[in-house]
Design a protein around this nucleic acid. Structure first.
Lengths: 205, 205
DNA sequence: TGTACATCAGTGAACGCGCGTTCACTGATGTAC
DNA sequence: TGTACATCAGTGAACGCGCGTTCACTGATGTAC
C-alpha cells in the first residue's frame, strides 16, 4: 500500500472498477462486497459512494466496461478475417476467448439485471450484439442463407457461442487447455455457420 | 404455518429442498440464506444441519435434484418422437423449456461448483449428458454425420441449447411469450442438427 | 404388554462477524476578483 | 500574485442487521428383553 498516496486519489472510479474485477476473479461473484473493493483500492469504505450510487451501480459499471471490451475484441478479431464468414467465425471464437480470459467480467455482464436502472450497461450490450448482426448480414450479402432472417440467424449464432462460453466457464466441457477449447469453438462456429447456410467454405460432409 | 405440526417433521429434508427452490425463485440465488430456508420450512434455523453438512451441501442437493428432473424431462420429450433426429430435437427443446420453467433449479445446477465435494450432484449431471449422447448416437446410426465424433457432436448440440436457455433466462432474447421462445428453440435445434448432419429431414435451403 | 435405554431430530440461545449505508466532518482543489 | 470561498472527494465512527455455525439441551421414536 502506497502511503504517499495523496488525499485525492486521482482516478478512484477506474481504480474501483479494476479492484472489483480482481476481487470477483479471486473470490467469485457472490463474495463480492463493497467494503472489500474499497479496501483494495486503498480507500475508506464510504469513498465508493462518491462515484457509485450503490453496490449494484458499481456492478453495472463493471458490466458496461465488460461489454465495451467484448465489442472491441470481437471487432478486432473479425478484422483479421477476409471472407465474411471467416470474419464472423473469428468473432465467435473471440467471444469464447473473452469469456475465458475475463470470466469475472463475463459473469457480471450476464448476471446483473441490466434492464432496470442501468441503461448505459444495457446500451453497451446492445452495441455488442449489433456488431454480431453486422457480421451475419455481411455473410448473407454473399449467400442467400437458409431462410431465417438476419436477426434470427444472429441470435442462433449468438446462442451457440454463448453456450460454449458458459459451459466452458462452468467446467462442463472437458478441455484442459485453452488451445483445445479454442479448437472446439472453431468446430462449433463452423457447424452453426453450416447450419445457417452462412459458411462460404465447402461443407465437409 | 401449521401449528399442529409434530416435533418431528416427517420429511424435513425434502421440505428444505422445496423451500430452497421457492426462495431462490422469489429472491434469486444471491439472496439465498439457510436461515430463511429453515424459516420457510417452519423449523428452527439449526434444524437443517441434521440433514445437510452446510449451506453449500444443501445447494448441491438442489442441483442434484435439478439434474435428475432435467434428465427425466429430456427422456420423456425424446420418447414423444419417432425418428432419431426428432427425438434429439425434442430433447433439446425440453432442455430450454426446463430452464425457463425451473430457472431456480437451472441456475443452481450450473453455479455450484460440483467438481469438489458433492460427487452425487456431479454424477447426476453426467447422467444427464449421457442421455444426450445416446440420442445423438442414434441419429448417427442412421446417417453418417459430418465427421465429428458422436461425443463432439453432442457437446456442440449441448452448447447450442444451453446458450439458448441462458440467454433466454437473462432476458437477452427478445421473446415475450414461452411460445415464441419455443419456436426459436425449434429453429435453433434444427439449425444445429443441419450443421452436424444429424437432421434426417430435407434441408430447407 | 411394559419398561429401560439408545438414538434420532428437533430447539433456542449464543458466538463472532462483516456487511451496506448514512452522517458529520475535513483536507484538497479550483475559481472569481 | 493573493485571498476568500464554494465545491469536490475523501475520512472514520456509527447504525442496524442478518448471516452461518456451534452448543448444550430436550422431546419423540424405536428396539431389546
Amino acid at each position: 500500500v502506497n502511503k504517499r498516496r495523496p488525499y485525492h486519489h486521482g482516478d478512484l472510479r477506474q481504480a474501483l472498477l479494476t479492484a472489483s474485477v480482481d476481487l470477483i476473479r479471486e473470490l467469485g461473484r457472490s463474495e463480492f462486497t463493497l467494503r472489500e473493493v474499497a479496501r483494495r483500492a486503498g480507500v475508506s469504505h464510504a469513498a465508493p459512494y462518491r462515484h457509485f450510487r450503490d453496490k449494484s451501480d458499481l456492478l453495472a459499471a463493471v458490466a458496461e466496461e465488460g461489454f465495451e471490451r467484448l465489442t472491441a475484441s470481437i471487432r478486432i478479431a473479425a478484422d483479421r478475417g477476409r471472407q465474411p464468414f471467416e470474419r464472423l467465425q473469428n468473432a465467435g471464437v473471440a467471444y469464447v476467448d473473452f469469456a475465458l480470459k475475463q470470466p469475472e467480467h463475463f459473469s457480471v455482464m450476464f448476471s446483473v439485471d441490466l434492464r432496470q436502472d442501468h441503461a448505459s450497461a444495457r446500451v453497451a450490450a446492445e452495441r455488442c450484439f449489433a456488431e454480431l448482426v453486422t457480421l451475419v448480414a455481411a455473410c448473407r450479402d454473399e449467400r442467400p442463407g437458409n431462410g431465417e432472417t438476419t436477426l434470427t440467424s444472429a441470435r442462433i449464432a449468438w446462442s451457440q457461442v454463448h453456450g460454449v462460453a458458459e459451459l466452458a466457464l462452468r467446467g462442463q466441457l472437458p478441455f484442459s487447455s485453452k488451445k483445445e477449447l479454442r479448437r472446439f469453438a472453431i468446430l462449433a462456429t463452423e457447424t452453426i455457420g453450416r447450419g445457417l447456410g452462412l459458411n462460404d467454405r465447402a461443407p465437409r460432409s
